[in-house]
Amino acid sequence: MQQLLKQAQKMQEELAKAQRELAEAHVAGSAGGGLVEVTVTGAGELVSLTIAPAAVDPEDTETLADLILAAVRDANATAQKMQAERMGPLAQGLGGGIPGLPF
Rank of each mutant, 00 (worst) to 15 (best):
E21T: 09
H26S: 15
T61H: 02
E59H: 04
L15G: 15
Q9H: 07
D60F: 01
A8W: 12
M87A: 04
D60T: 01
T61C: 03
T41W: 11
K17T: 15
V47M: 12
L67A: 03
G34F: 08
V36P: 10
Q92P: 02
L15A: 09
M1C: 05
F103T: 02
A25E: 14
L49P: 04
F103S: 03
E45S: 14
L69Y: 05
L35T: 07
V40A: 10
P58T: 03
H26E: 15
M82D: 03
E14A: 09
E85G: 06
E24T: 11
M1R: 13
A43D: 03
K81T: 03
A65M: 04
T78G: 07
G29P: 02
Q83G: 03
A79S: 06
P99Q: 09
A79W: 00
T78H: 06
V56G: 08
P99A: 04
N76H: 02
G93R: 12
V40W: 14
T63N: 12
Q7M: 11
L5G: 06
A43F: 00
P99M: 13
A91R: 07
P58V: 02
T63P: 00
A65I: 05
A18S: 09
A23N: 11
A28I: 10
V36F: 06
L94S: 04
I98F: 13
L22V: 12
L35N: 09
K17Q: 15
A16S: 14
